[in-house]
Design a protein around this nucleic acid. Structure first.
Lengths: 176, 176
DNA sequence: CCAACCATGTAAGCTGTTACATGATTGA
DNA sequence: TCAATCATGTAACAGCTTACATGGTTGG
């Protein structure tokens, strides 16, 4: 089963604390995790799918109490496997927010070495990606860019360099 | 008709220079515009839709020559209207790449005042957005964040600050 | 009492992904 | 000649958006 970014966000939030569908929507509405839509049409079907796949379990529905989702052992191991994936430079180009989502959920893994490994792979991927952009800007294609085009690429470069600075600070904070 | 980011990318590229579907795919494959998929299953249907909507026109197919897409007057005015939209802070949270795409295509508008207006609205939106994140970090919710969570938000903040620095430099370059 | 919010869902429709299919041209 | 690349498409499917639908609770 292919899990989407939204799927991982839901599993991760439920893992940190069992929640109802509505509580999950509120998170996307009220916090900087708002890059995900909080619309019922996305959340409820996604939760149902995760429950059907055995990643989450809806508890409390029988006894009249308000039902909340809990994470299952399968959800736990799936999440863990995802969190341990190294950052690839491909991911940087297409889905940086997924990278940061993964980092945020690393909080639930006690072993700080996992966080350090993650940050190191992030650093490497950023280096590769930044170098690629610099090479492009220096290539015939890059040199023939219009002023706006070049500035747009440079904007991207600055963003990735900001990430790199952040990784350096984070690695320091996690003692590496 | 609702035009997607990919749609605007295609119109903008064809506007700068008439191209075949394959040539457009190559752009997404070989340049930093690669955040768009270059798969045939996305490009060709999108081109057909734009042609059906009267934004693009496929020329040269009859005479055995290799067919290329040209922009139509409707495509032109639609693009122009899109380029003149101010940047909103909502756009920053959900689709920064669209903002940069718009900036890149501003190259085709002679009037530099449009670019300056764009940059100014970008600056304002960034200020609002950054302030919102800072306020969040200082709120009870933000203060109760885990170390990873806070770092993830700070990473976002740094990215937006990098954008802000870039805007300042760009405004200087465009004499404002 | 009425507006706002809590709370959960479904249905239609659009985009994009992956995979398949086809055939021409070019360079080693 | 054979692999790579040019070149264009289609079909099945998954995911998300928008909009609709429903009903309970709470606070002013």
């Amino acid at each position: 089963m292919q899990i989407t970014a939204l799927g991982y966000a839901l599993i991760g939030l439920v893992r940190a604390e069992p929640r109802s569908g509505y509580a999950l929507r509120k998170v996307f509405e009220d916090t900087p995790m708002g890059s995900f839509s909080s619309s019922p049409g996305s959340i409820y079907p996604a939760l149902k799918k995760l429950a059907d796949a055995g990643m989450l379990e809806k508890r409390g529905a029988e006894s009249g109490r308000k039902p909340v989702f809990h994470i299952t052992p399968l959800g736990e191991s799936t999440m863990r496997a995802w969190l341990e994936l190294p950052v690839t430079s491909d991911e940087l180009a297409h889905a940086v927010d997924r990278v940061l989502l993964r980092f945020a959920f690393l909080q639930d893994i006690q072993d700080l070495r996992v966080t350090r490994r993650f940050l190191t792979s992030f650093e490497t991927a950023l280096g590769t990606h930044i170098e690629g952009l610099e090479i492009y800007l220096d290539s015939p294609d890059g040199r023939s860019l219009s002023r706006h085009g070049r500035l747009a690429v440079e904007n991207g470069l600055r963003g990735f360099r900001a990430h790199l600075d952040w990784v350096a600070d984070a690695l320091e904070e996690f003692g590496s």
